[in-house]
Amino acid sequence: MLHFQSATFYTSINDAQDLPPCSGIEEVAFAGRSNAGKSSVINTLTHRNRLAFVSKTPGRTQQINFFKLDTGQFLVDLPGYGYAKVPYSIHQHWEKLLSSYLQTRKSLKGLILIMDIRHPLKSSDIQMLEWFAPSGRAIHILLTKADKLSKQQANITLKEVSLYLKRSACSQCSVQLFSSLSAIGVEEARFVINKWFTNN
């Protein structure tokens, strides 16, 4: 198994032309709406409280951040999307950067897509799925903040999202419950990422 706690900050980029070269080193990217808890997910998976910056103001991740594991592989924190209080020019830049990265990055093994379980499958989430699904790469959805719902309601939402995926063009997607606060689904998510990195 990967040593997720070995993750260290490697670099931040704000333009696709500055991405580290694809030299056979694999990476898994994390994407999600700006208030879905993406940074908390990365910190929880790596046992690091402030590896990825957690802010009370959504939209603070404005660059692509690379975190390197001791295996040489990368966890990649993508800019949050879908938050209305950033200027339109920044929205345009993020969209171009995300689209370029997700559709052309050869070293990308898969996408961990973060959705708040109370507000899953927003239009921007669906757009992200539609951008990435044609690549044929793996997609795994984390329904975060599962502790905010009863176990019954969380499982109902999980089934609803699973059904949507099966009926859409994203049938290769998988989905699970996750909570950074109560550690629901942490080991399951680590297992998925480890499997992506070790299956060549």
Rank of each mutant, 00 (worst) to 15 (best):
F67H: 05
W94D: 06
F67S: 01
I139L: 08
A133D: 11
I90G: 06
S100H: 15
E95I: 11
Q103F: 10
T61W: 01
E130T: 12
L98V: 11
A138M: 11
Q62E: 08
D70A: 12
Q63P: 05
I112W: 01
I90C: 09
H140S: 14
L69M: 13
A138R: 06
S99Q: 14
A133L: 10
S99I: 07
D77P: 00
P134W: 03
T57H: 09
N65W: 05
I64P: 01
L111N: 02
W94A: 04
E130N: 15
L121I: 05
I112N: 00
I114C: 00
Q63L: 13
L69G: 01
H93M: 15
L102Y: 04
A133G: 14
M115H: 04
A133P: 13
R118E: 09
S135G: 07
S124A: 12
M128C: 10
D77S: 08
Q127D: 14
K106W: 10
Y83S: 02
I126G: 06
Y81P: 00
L97T: 05
G72D: 07
D116K: 12
Q73L: 12
G59T: 11
L102A: 08
L78V: 13
P58I: 04
A138N: 12
L108H: 01
R137L: 12
T57A: 09
T57G: 07
L97F: 06
H91Q: 14
G110E: 03
L108E: 02
